[in-house]
Every structure is written in structure tokens, then in C-alpha cells.
């Protein structure tokens, strides 16, 4: 899988070309090009302040990039130029869903409601743009039932079915992260962008997350793009790693390739030799544990 077959070159779901984002005088992302392969788990890594979240915000339409082109090809074969779309259209038309670094759940709404809000657009049509729904005609009930079933499917998948009717704000941290992923998946995306999904998780939760992401790719056929610091997640499950430093891409390849890239080691870990050794060790351990599992 990690060998010569590079999906991101042959069949990219997302291609970012010459993306630059400036804030006043600060260049957060500089002429970045990379692709995410269809069905791949692509990891975007880099030290703090490398511009990873900025890239995400550009892809998902929250920022308008200064220059650059981002093309998204969902399964239906259409081509969407993301830089021309407002944020909500990126989600609804181009089928890109995302989570946030600092979790953004609807904390006063129940888990089920969170997952129903994610199905807003189809449900809106089902309710006859509200007009028929208020009058109680147009078969909205059945469509809502289907939406609840879909929510149930995801609650089962993240293991939170028993808490379906509790407010999202009451969940422990790790469960909130999973719920946010499930909520993004309820929009039926072709590309799922995860901003540090493993941040703050304990090792067990982190392993569960890996399993969840792998199953999302396998069962739902959704490609995943993730920002991550947790090397066990990055090396454990990703097919493709893109490394950023100061807004510039310094490496791009399979996890094995990037892991051994001296530029990555130097940049990502700083130039201090001791640190390098330490981290190399960590990386090896992570790789070892991956092999051990396999």
C-alpha cells in the first residue's frame, strides 16, 4: 500500500496548487501545492505556527486565500474550485466537512440534535423549505425518521448511543472529539478534514480514534485530510504525509519517506541533536507499535 501506488498523483480528491495566504505582512502559507488521494488518509504535519490550520481554513472556505487554486473532485465527478466558494457551499456542494482544533459542538443541544443539524440541507428540502413542514404535510416525518436512523448509525459507530439524549456539552473531552467527527460525517462528505483530532486524548482514546478513522475510510469511502501532532496517529494510519514549515512545504510522501527525510527531522524537531534522537526513537516506537498491531 505504501509503495509505488501513489493515489494522490493518479486520482486526487483534492488538489491544492500554489496556495498563498497573507495576513497583512505575515505570510502564513507560501506557494503550497499538494494533493490528497481519493480514499487516502493524508496527514498535514509541521511544527506549531507552520500554517496548517490556515491551510484548512482556506480549503474549507473560512479564509479567502491570497492566491492559489484548490480543486475538489467529489465522487459524482464534478469539479469544484474551492477558493471561489463561500464556506457553507464548500461543505454543502463540494462535500468537504471539517472539525475544529478547539471543539465546536452545539453544547446546549443533545447528541442527536447535533447530528440532525448536520443533515440540515436534505432535511430542509424534505420539510418543503419549512412551509410544508409547518402545515404538517409533505412527508417530512418519514425523512426525519431516516435522518434519525443515520444519526443512530453514527452514534453506534462512535459508541455514544446510550448518551444520545444528553447535551453535547456534558460529554467528556474524548467523546466530544468523536461526536464532532460523527457530526461532520453526517453531512455525507467526500473529504473529511480533521484539525488535530487526537489532541488531548489518552492512548486508549487515541487508538479508538485510529480505528474510527480507518473504518470511516473503509465503510464510508470518505477520504481524510488531517492535521496532527500525535505521531502514533500520523504514522499509524496515514497513507500520505505532507510536511509544512513556516508555510512552506518541505516534504511530501509516504510516512516512511517523510519519517526518514533529514529536512523533516531537522525542521520539525529543531536542530538540537539530542531532541532529534529522542524523537527518532519516538517515531520508531510508533512505527514499531504499528507493525506490532498489524
Amino acid at each position: 500500500m505504501m509503495t509505488s501506488h501513489r493515489t494522490w498523483d493518479s486520482d486526487p480528491v483534492l488538489s491544492v496548487e500554489h496556495l498563498t495566504m497573507r495576513f497583512g505582512g505575515l505570510v502564513a502559507v507560501n506557494d503550497l501545492s499538494f494533493s490528497a488521494g481519493r480514499g487516502d488518509i493524508t496527514a498535514l504535519i509541521g511544527p506549531n505556527g507552520a500554517g496548517k490550520t490556515t491551510v484548512f481554513n482556506c480549503i474549507t472556505g473560512f479564509y479567502k486565500p491570497t492566491t492559489g487554486m484548490m480543486s475538489m473532485r467529489p465522487k459524482d465527478g464534478a469539479l469544484h474550485l474551492l477558493e471561489r466558494m463561500p464556506d457553507f457551499v464548500v461543505a454543502s456542494k463540494a462535500k468537504v466537512a471539517r472539525t475544529f482544533q478547539n471543539i465546536r459542538l452545539f453544547s446546549g443541544m443533545t447528541l442527536l440534535e447535533n447530528l440532525l443539524v448536520a443533515q440540515h440541507n436534505p432535511l430542509m428540502i424534505a420539510s418543503g423549505m419549512t412551509f410544508l413542514g409547518v402545515l404538517g404535510i409533505g412527508g417530512y416525518k418519514a425523512k426525519e425518521k431516516a435522518a434519525i436512523d443515520r444519526a443512530r448509525y453514527w452514534l453506534d459507530k462512535i459508541g455514544l448511543t446510550a448518551r444520545a439524549d444528553d447535551p453535547a456539552g456534558d460529554l467528556p473531552y474524548g467523546a466530544q472529539r468523536r461526536l464532532e467527527i460523527a457530526r461532520a460525517m453526517c453531512t455525507g462528505p467526500d473529504l473529511l478534514c480533521l484539525d488535530e483530532p487526537a489532541a488531548g486524548l489518552n492512548p486508549r482514546e487515541s487508538a479508538e480514534l485510529n480505528a474510527l478513522l480507518l473504518s470511516i475510510r473503509k465503510d464510508d469511502g470518505t477520504s481524510i485530510l488531517l492535521i496532527e501532532h500525535d505521531m502514533s496517529v500520523v504514522m499509524g494510519i496515514s497513507d500520505h504525509v505532507v510536511v509544512l514549515e513556516y508555510g512552506i512545504k518541505i516534504a511530501d510522501g509516504t510516512p516512511t519517506e517523510t519519517r526518514n527525510d533529514p529536512r523533516v527531522i531537522a525542521a520539525y524537531l529543531g536542530v538540537d541533536d539530542e531532541d532529534v534522537e529522542e524523537i527518532e526513537q519516538e517515531l520508531d516506537e510508533a512505527a514499531g507499535s504499528e507493525e506490532g498491531r498489524a
Partner: peptide
């Protein structure tokens, strides 16, 4: 609850 999250879910 959260406008940014709404937009990320495709809500106009």
C-alpha cells in the same frame, strides 16, 4: 450555539 460550526456543516 456556534455560527462557525453551522457554516462548516453547509448551513447558509
Amino acid at each position: 450555539e456556534d455560527e462557525v460550526a453551522c457554516r462548516s456543516l453547509g448551513i447558509n
